[in-house]
């Protein structure tokens, strides 16, 4: 069942589902956890061998794979935990301070 929660913050007390049930499976993706990040994983495709360790280890399924190759990170949900960078056998992932990107955006 698709669950329309656009206005959920304004729902009256009796509009919620009984027992705080969530009728839509896997809807955690609506919750964008990318804002929690202080460091951003950045991949060096030159070094990467596409072993997919990072994809296996990422606790937030934020490594996007296409045709058995690393495509990109899902920055909407990546929390910047750095697990992928630690686990990468080729040290192909660097964790970069988010402020660096903010500075770039501002200039």
């Amino acid at each position: 069942m698709k669950w329309d929660i656009k206005n959920i913050k304004n729902w009256k007390y009796n509009q919620h589902l009984e027992g705080a049930l969530i009728p839509e499976a896997g809807n955690a993706e609506y919750y964008k956890t990318g804002g929690w990040r202080t460091e951003r994983p950045v991949i060096d495709k030159e070094k990467c061998t596409n072993c997919l360790f990072c994809w296996i280890f990422c606790p937030d399924t934020s490594v996007i794979v296409e045709d058995a190759k690393i495509k990109e990170f899902d920055y909407d949900h990546c929390k910047g935990c750095g697990v992928c960078a630690v686990e990468c056998p080729k040290s192909a992932i660097s964790m970069i301070d988010e402020n660096e990107f903010k500075k770039q955006e501002n200039t």
């Binding site: 069942m1 729902w11 589902l17």
Partner: peptide
């Protein structure tokens, strides 16, 4: 009516409520 083993209509039970905070509303119910 709504239960975990109803695979046609999957639901999540016992999810965390602390970020949006509807605890108060559920207590009134």
């Amino acid at each position: 009516e709504k239960y975990l083993l109803d695979i046609e209509n999957p639901v999540a039970v016992g999810s965390f409520d602390g970020l949006h905070g509807f605890y108060f509303e559920h207590k009134k119910v």
